[in-house]
Design a protein around this nucleic acid. Sequence first.
DNA 1: CTGAAAGCGCTTACAG
DNA 2: CTGAAAGCGCTTACAG
Lengths: 330, 330
Amino acid sequence: MPKTIYDIAKAAGVSIATVSRVYNSSNTVKESTRQKILSIADEMGYHPQAYAQRLASKKKNSIMMLVPVMSNHFFTEILKGTQDILVDLNIELTIQNVNQELGVFRQVEQILKRQWADGYLLVSLHLSDQELKKLKRFNVPLSLLDDVSPLYDSVGFDNVAGGYKATAYLLKKGYHDIVFLSGKLSAKPVKERLQGYKNALLESRIPFSNNRVILGNSMDRDGFTEKSGYEAMLKILNSDPLPEAVFCSSDIKAIGALKAMNDENITLPMVSYDNLSISEYIGLTTVHQPMYEMGYHATRHLIERIGNPDATICDFVHDPELIIRSSSEV
Amino acid sequence: MPKTIYDIAKAAGVSIATVSRVYNSSNTVKESTRQKILSIADEMGYHPQAYAQRLASKKKNSIMMLVPVMSNHFFTEILKGTQDILVDLNIELTIQNVNQELGVFRQVEQILKRQWADGYLLVSLHLSDQELKKLKRFNVPLSLLDDVSPLYDSVGFDNVAGGYKATAYLLKKGYHDIVFLSGKLSAKPVKERLQGYKNALLESRIPFSNNRVILGNSMDRDGFTEKSGYEAMLKILNSDPLPEAVFCSSDIKAIGALKAMNDENITLPMVSYDNLSISEYIGLTTVHQPMYEMGYHATRHLIERIGNPDATICDFVHDPELIIRSSSEV
DNA sequence: CTGAAAGCGCTTACAG
DNA sequence: CTGAAAGCGCTTACAG
């Protein structure tokens, strides 16, 4: 049977109030009493129960991160940024997975309703403005990561600018027929990167054509998989005429695409998107997203908002940076 | 202000017991009453608070996964296996990060003490037998993932056999001077893979030499980084005599090692370890670890144990399988 | 089908 | 420095 505060109090010959004080760093407990309680508690394997504490104290000291299963590939970096803030503050972090297939908004609502945390970090969730507005009624600090909105503190990327930069770079190198290796078109980052691609073409007075947007058949994880990249690139390499260059919507897809080029013995210049930690070693020219900084800042904003709910909202958009490596220099 | 069960009860003109029943799928509530309560609750944004519920009901319906920050690269797969079980059972999953630098055992103890979940999945935590034994006193279902112990349900890999298979394959191809590209030697999987490497050498009557164990300088994440692999491989390629082949302790390191070979324009046959989803596309010959199955089984064991704490302990060791791709066939 | 009441394991003014 | 007591927001026999 798990021990309760009563067991400890009885064993130590004190009231439960005193035991409680030991765990709430109230310095009004006599040192000898404190030592005695701690040693008894340790021996009996006691520690205050998380939910009883929260119910009684109304303090949570906890933030929650909501992440889609999908977003794994830059998740570690974000997490590092988040934890570098939290460690010093002694705030607990809970990670909740959101299943992209089960109605993201409903799941988020369910989670918020339960009032588990002092604040929530929504990572790559891309809710609509209307949905975001609805969340206001829970009246709880929310911070968006990899998404921007004027309604909440948010740290995002300018995917349109990123798509533009990637494409413009290829155009500047003299390639005119550039294919967009796309993910699921309903995914917000895909849409935006595609828009950037279109903008760059427009600027160079090159007509946009829908059949230059190529998808793989595998559509799990919004099409952000090696497999999907492989499939799409195979289609491209077996098409006639061949394009002159490729703008790939993500590094993971690009890895699949690279293999397809290798298998077919055709190399096309390619720029992709994300700059994962492996990308440097694979030689991907890619648009950098500063995940660590993102995690760091979003978390800091959230903590500040928890402290001061009425501060002005702070939405920050990272400028994309193109990193040139070998994949574009063939 | 967040609403409580009292607010809803008052608004609906019923007692709090009735409101509670609606949320506990007791079918004794009159349908019209139930509808009324649900619509009022929805309107007021009410939902029972997680921790009050758990305190009162003593039910948790929740399991917790403890993961080191490090283990990201096969984490998604494990998670998929876990969730495929949990979704149907309506059990909540919480993920807690464990910081490898802050005393893993102490953190685990802290978490268990708080009695948050019905059971815990310890992923890649590699506690000592003694530590594992100490955890018994919390008397809570525990399941080990990527670790084996007779004390708990566990699903692990035979890293020694895997190291052996990788090395034996290279030996069979006629390479005698094989270097081990190591991670941090204090890490359990590294030690075991190294042991397998030694066993294979021994079997072929090739003396083991400590200077054939090469480490990179970067030691974060137990040395399982691209950077560390790159550094180590650079050392190797600048040594004299060159080895004939390489056994690399992880795929992520192998990616760095591949770049080093590329930069130095020397290619050595290499076998590595993990079979990450990218490895197929990079052409790594590697030892496969079935993460999905692992997540699936460990979770199933945990659920069963929660249902029946006295069932016999079930520890399962996956047999490693060598997947041949291009990196070893130079 | 519903309500009154006890209880879950804590915290925290209040009083001494 | 410590204790008695009220209260946090729920659930659940028990009674009707």
